[in-house]
Each structure stands twice: as structure tokens, then as C-alpha cells.
Design a protein around this nucleic acid. Sequence first.
DNA 1: TTTCTTGTGGAAAACGATTTCGATTTCTTT
DNA 2: AAAGAAATCGAAATCGTTTTCCACAAGAAA
Lengths: 368, 368
Amino acid sequence: MIAQWLCYNRSETFRGEQAQHKSMARRHNIDGRPTIAQIARIAGVSVPTVSKVLNGRADVSLPTREKVERIIEEYGFVRNRAARALRKGKTGLVDLLLPRLDDEYYLPILEGVAQVLREAGLRLVLTATDYKPEEEVRWITTVTDHSTDGILVVLPSERAIEQLERSGLPFVLIHNQGGLQATAPSVRITSWEGGFVATTYLLRLGHQRIAYIGKTSPARDAIERIAGYRAALDAAGLPLMPELECDGDFTEASGYQATLRLLELPEPPTAIFAGNDRQAAGVYRALHERGLVVPEQMSVVGFDNLPYTEIMNPPLTTIHAPRLELGRTAATMLLRLINGEQLEMPRVVLPTHLVERQSCSPPRQQQE
Amino acid sequence: MIAQWLCYNRSETFRGEQAQHKSMARRHNIDGRPTIAQIARIAGVSVPTVSKVLNGRADVSLPTREKVERIIEEYGFVRNRAARALRKGKTGLVDLLLPRLDDEYYLPILEGVAQVLREAGLRLVLTATDYKPEEEVRWITTVTDHSTDGILVVLPSERAIEQLERSGLPFVLIHNQGGLQATAPSVRITSWEGGFVATTYLLRLGHQRIAYIGKTSPARDAIERIAGYRAALDAAGLPLMPELECDGDFTEASGYQATLRLLELPEPPTAIFAGNDRQAAGVYRALHERGLVVPEQMSVVGFDNLPYTEIMNPPLTTIHAPRLELGRTAATMLLRLINGEQLEMPRVVLPTHLVERQSCSPPRQQQE
DNA sequence: TTTCTTGTGGAAAACGATTTCGATTTCTTT
DNA sequence: AAAGAAATCGAAATCGTTTTCCACAAGAAA
């Protein structure tokens, strides 16, 4: 047992694996990792010449270039990023600030950002603020120290935006909560339309009593979703039914509890529009517990289109939130800003759309 | 419509928001962001003194310190990270390499790493290799340029490990695939025990015909899981049943297809051990399609304990893979290495355990 | 009063790359 | 063959911080 917990000695490994480089290095009196100056000396050229080769500049003759390239290859030289960043004023890093990392909602956003940055040869620094103001203060000071070329913030607070604008660094907001007057570059989704479309879909199926879950959250997207719901009812000439607008903080548990309350109503709804997919999962659980089957006895619509909605039973009809594109466009915009370009469209809104699966059907005749 | 797509002019914003700093800066002929030298000049001290204040050194008198601190605060000075990194040889950055970002399996690992790094005041650079060798080559050269202080790699390839050892940078492997002889510091989970425990659990419930899905993957964890399954059968005195060992590449679809094939067997199994939760979801789908109910007509066990297993219907019994701890311990080990310490336990294996939910029950009497 | 600490502060040399600009060489042109 | 143009290369400055080491002053010990 003990034998396999062999002690790992870093310097030993280093010596072992770097042997071939080491021997060459010794000949030229190099201690550790080679620098541009050492490469230059070995190649018999000047430091700027090596730099020019490294940066693919034109004013280097072919023989010189090849010689230098050979030496670089031979010694496994890689240039020191810190020195480069210092001189060029660019770090090649972009900061992405997420509220949480354990929430899979943000995953495609992250993926989208990573894709674009990778294509551009930039690297991604990830920070989770955990919704805590102290954390925000920490990253604000740590982020504005020129250690990154630009900043992407998901669900930024007002204070965060102020700090960002003050810093002078390029930044783009994702899911900006701010008021309409904010001019900062941002990417959002059409939450209102999503709410409207989902509700309209249920209305078209013939539902008259449609509940909404998710009234608690003060987030802008949540507010827009319920507003879309109300607008759709209104457009259909139906009155608002306050008893069908349930609290819900966008967790599975709140969807569960809201559903139980809805089922105890004298006249329960025939369809439930959950403000997000997690709540929809809670709705499923409550319905299953009460022995109601989806969609025959209750239609359900979610929001976000998380991956697992496909494998729910039955698969959940939901509003697709284009989260990958959210990340991609935000990153693309940021690259423009970093490049000193102007954004012709600083405030982008990405469309949502309905994904029809099997959790909805027309209501039963006469509600029993 | 057009009105709200106001053009965002970065330099304008900069001018506006930084006005109060700017005015002071102008008095002292400062153009952009202040440097240590400018702070020093304004405070009437030397550059090293400011640096000493910044680094909390002892050889600065209280009045001087306070004066400098006041100026720093007043001008909103933050030091340039690149310069600091160049001089100190440390960047304050740690690289995390993940195969994919759109796979929620890795999310808790990421979260764990982020937690530990945040506590240590380091920042996380995230890279996705996308399982592509070219990508790996790219990051290998880009990552070993001293731009990060250490590297964490999830599911590293052999070549990646070689490169890492050659680079001389501290690194820790997560889910190392390598052979037992590898001495590189790594963190894994007890996949074999997980497979053994899951299978034994089903055996104890009375199942005799237990299928396993997930034979295709060459990943070490996959191999260990099926080995654990076989060992449990063996320990129970049961023969191996090759027709019950199904191919499966750990996707939902493969779980679905494998299940359909299993159900067509002359003598189908009474329980299915899916190599991971995604495959288990496919199992559920196939069973539901065929009208079989879990667990009465088929017991199912998963592996990984992904978040959505809790809201599956019925909730899935599965093997918990401690992914958060995987990230935390790997990051903790890396910090030690960065700090120049030795690891007394360079190869850590984290325990898995069974999470009992409602997808298993004793087999029906007499199989019909 | 003299010497020895102790405490403060600064001059200058790093760190490793990039960039500017001038010097040299080579190649055309007249 | 001389003069001008083009290609090639390098010396030195620079980015902003940290670190080493030395100078100086004030207080303590002789």
C-alpha cells in the first residue's frame, strides 16, 4: 500500500526529463530556462534579431532566420510572457466573472467565451464572485491592474459596472441587470418574448388557467419573463389571476412547493409555466407525487433549455436561452473593444425560441 | 429602435468616469494610469519606498507609510501585474486544463479548484483541449512559458504528461489515465471500488442477472468500473455473462441503445449498472419507451452522481464521484508544489460511495 | 565625546522581452 | 565607378516593479 504513495520529488524529475536540454545548456553556461539573450548569444546574433524572428518580422535574412529558429527549437525556448506583457502593454488574458461555478446554467456561456478567445489566441481567467459583495470588491481591485486586457461580467451589480467604467478597461456585460439608460456594451436575451411565447403557446393549446412560477426573483430576466406571461394573457383577453402567480426563487424546491400549493387551489390550473427549467423539475416531482401525469393532466413549460430537459420524463417543452451565443457574441464584442474598434451595436439582445417537446397538450375537456 | 443601440465610445466613458483622478493626475503631469514612479514623485519619496509600502515591509516609518498610502488611495493606484510577475518570477496564475467545457461532469472539479485558488489569492486560467491533440500541442507550448505558476490537467494524455515533466513547472494530474508506474502527482477516484460496490448492492438485493453498460471507453476509469463489476460477480460466485456486458461510450444515446438490446435478449437482466449517469438516463428512456417501470421491473444504478440524478423519475441510485474534492485536493497539492514543498502523498485516491435512492428494488419473483 | 547599533530611505541593477533608430552591407542605377 | 536605394542587423532605451546594498541620521552604550 505504502509503496504506491511514492514521494514525488520535483527537482529529480526535472533533472531527469530535461537532460537533453540541460547538456546543451551547460555548454553555454545556461542555468535554467533559456532567455532571448542566451539564444542570441548561442546563435551569434543580437537580441533584437531573435525577437524579430520570434515575431515574424520581415527584416531578417533567410539564413539568419533559419539559424535562429533552429537554435530556438533545439533549446526548447519559449518566451517569457510576463516580460512580453510588460513591454507590449497587453497580457493576452481576458477575465470572465461568473456569479457561481456550480450552476450549470452558466456552462455554455463559459464555453462560448472560451471558444472565441481560443480562436483569437487569448486565454481565459475565470473568477467566481459567489454573489458576495466582498468578493466583488476583491476582484474589482485585482482585475483592474492591467493583468487582463478586458473583462466579461455575467450578472454584474451596479457597483461592479461603475468600477469597470472607471477602470477604463474594455468590458462587456452579460445578462446586464441595469436600467435601460445604461450605455455600457452588453448582451442579453429576449426574456420578455420568451415569457410571451411560452404563454401564448399554452393559450393556443386551449389552456385558460395558466400558472406562472418564479415571482420572487428581483433579477431583470425574471421580471421580464413574468411580464411576458402577463402580456400574453392580456393579449388573449384573459384577466390576470394573482392566485396563479406563484413565488419561486428559481430553485427546484420552489417549483415543487409552488406546484403543491397550486394543486390545493379550488380551481387548479391546467398548465404551469415555470420561470426556469429547475423549477420545472420541481413541478414534475410534485405532480408525480400527487399522481398527475404530464401532459395529460397538466401541461408544463420551462425556460432556459438546460441539457437535462431532454431526458426528463416526458421531455420538457421549454424556451431556449441561447447561452452559447451569449458567450460567443460577448467575447467577440470584447475582442473588438480590445482591438480599439468601435462597436456599431453595443447593446445586443439575442432571441429566445420555443423548443417543443412532450410536456404539453390541450387541456382535458371540462377540467374533469 | 435604433436609438437604443447607442454607440459606445470607450474613450469618452474613460474621460467621464475617471474625471476626479484625471484632474489630480493633470496637476502632476500624468497621462494615463499612474505608476509607482509617479506615486513616488508625488509623495516626495523614492520608488523603492513606495514598493516597500506596497509590500508591507518593515523599514518604512509610520508617517512616510501613511503619506504614501494616502497618495496611493487618492490616485487609485494599482500596480502593474506584468511588471511584478517579471521581476518576481511568479504570475499568480494557475492553469486548469479540461477536455471539454460543455460537460457538466467537470463543473464541480472546476469549482473545487476555483475555491482553493481563490482562498490562496491566485487566479485561474481555464483552457479546454477538446480532446484534440493539436489543441494539446498548442497549450503545451503556450502554457510552459512561465505565464502560470502551475498547471492542473484533467484526463491528461501521455504526451501531455511528458511535456509537463519536461517543462519543470509544478503540476498535478486529475483522473490520470497513466499506468501504475507513473510517479507524477495525481488525484483519482476509486472507480474500481465504485463498480464493485454498485454491483454488490444489486447482488444483495437478490439480483442474479446484472447488466453493465459502458464497455467501449478505453479510459482508465471506465476500465476500472467494469473490473469492479466483474470482481463483484466473481466474489458472489456468479459466472461472467458476456451477453450482459454492453458497449457504451458513456453518452445518453449509448445507454438507450444498449438497453434496447438487453431487452431483446431471451433472458433479459433484472438490473442494469450503467457506467455513468448519462447512460443511466438513456436506460430510463428506453425502459419508459418499452413500458417497463423502475425499479419494479428493472433496477438501475448509475455512476458519478450528477445533479440531475436527484430529479430523475424515480431518483437514481448511483455511485458518488467526489468531484469537488477532486478539484480541491488537486489544487491544494499544486499550491504546495508551487510553494516549493514536497508532497508526502503525491498520488491521492479519493473514495466513492453509494448514494441510495429509489431506482433499485429486489427482483420480481421468478422473473415474471 | 566617541563608537555602535538601529532604523529609514534611496541609487542602481535586475527581470526578459520589444521597439526605435541609426549603422552597415548589398544591390541597382546612371 | 560613383551615388542612391534597399535590405539587414544591432546598441540602447523602455515597460513598471522588486531587490540588494549602501548611506545617513538618530539614539544607545561606552
